[in-house]
Amino acid sequence: MGLLGSDERPRDIILGTLDDLINMARSRSMWPLTFGIACCAIEMMATWDPKIDADRFGMFFRNTPRQADVMIVSGTVNKKLAKRLRRLYDQMAEPKWVISMGACANQGGPFRQGYSVVEGVDKIVPVDVYIPGCPPRPEALLQALLLLRDKIADRELRYQKPREIPTDYDVLAEPGKDGRLPVL
């Protein structure tokens, strides 16, 4: 990549593309939105506590979506919350990423059979990293954040992200009126 000086050049000169520079800056200052929903939120808080401490990677929580660039969906998303979650996602400025933390955010979790639970947050927002677990350990969330950091650093400056997430039924409607067969 050429970001670090090689032996032929003095070490205080870095060569790279603008993409690399901007992505390096973005990936080293990922600011998550404070959006703890359920049990995974407590493990998310535990990732920022002195034992694991994600602060040292430049990740500080921002309370408003306008200033955040990562949304960590930590907990079960139900149909009532899904509308608000999508609105929060839309309020975040580009570039933005989503980490789906825990089984509930991945695919509905232990509550998947229920009438009010959305089977996975990726039916509402596009997800970049999925973390399995119920709840995932703080180390797992840290690994996901570092994975996301590498994903951002490898990206091109202009990237395409899907805006519409197609599903064949109405995710937010009540059961019986959403146009699909029951989930087993």
Partner: peptide, 22 residues
Amino acid sequence: ILLEDEWALHPLLKRYDTGGYL
């Protein structure tokens, strides 16, 4: 209180299965 105001479903009735379908 727990479901959306517009919904018509009363889920804990035994006529519905776990997913809310009759």
